[in-house]
Simulated assay, not measured.
Amino acid sequence: MNVVPVAAGANTAAQESSTGQSNLVDYNSFLKLLVTQMKNQDPTKPMESTDYIAQLATFSQVEQTLQTNTKLEQLMQLSLLGQADAIIGRTVSSADGTVSGKVDEVRIGSNGMVAILENGTEFPVGPGIVIS
């Protein structure tokens, strides 16, 4: 059985949340920007109300996309945990056959999944390994 690694993007949500930095704009910020834009517009060329609605719709789409991305990253992390659980107690072999053994535990780090064999050998789980 070959295991395909989960994309490295699964760790970005955890990394972003751990740094505490956020470039997201919420609805209140958007409304403040909109009001400021209305106050500072040229009175001889006012913005159409349809333009405001289009901006709000665009902002709503961006926020929904960000929420979808967050949910997808959570699903990817759950999938990775499921993959990790599935290989514990099974025998893994490297693609070239130099490393082989029964998986005692699995550690998930920033570089992906690492299987720790019964003899203590750490084995990166990635393309080309065979699980039996």
Rank of each mutant, 00 (worst) to 15 (best):
V4R: 01
V4N: 04
V6G: 04
A8F: 07
A10I: 07
A10D: 06
N11W: 15
A14C: 02
A14M: 06
A14I: 12
A14F: 07
Q15L: 09
E16Y: 02
E16S: 01
S17T: 00
S18V: 06
S18K: 13
G20V: 06
G20H: 03
Q21T: 08
S22R: 02
N23D: 05
N23F: 05
D26R: 00
Y27D: 06
Y27M: 09
F30Y: 07
L33K: 13
V35W: 11
V35H: 12
Q37E: 13
Q37S: 15
Q37M: 11
M38T: 01
D42K: 03
P43V: 11
K45N: 14
T50P: 01
D51Q: 14
D51E: 15
Q55L: 15
Q61I: 10
Q61P: 00
T65H: 09
T68M: 06
N69K: 09
T70M: 06
K71N: 10
L72F: 11
L72G: 02
E73S: 15
L75V: 06
L75D: 11
M76I: 10
M76Q: 13
L78R: 12
L78G: 10
L80K: 08
G82D: 09
G82Q: 07
Q83V: 08
Q83R: 11
A84F: 05
I87T: 00
I88P: 00
G89A: 03
G89S: 01
R90I: 08
V92W: 08
A95Y: 14
D96P: 07
G97P: 11
T98E: 05
T98I: 03
T98K: 15
G101V: 09
V103S: 01
V103G: 01
V103H: 00
V106N: 01
I108G: 01
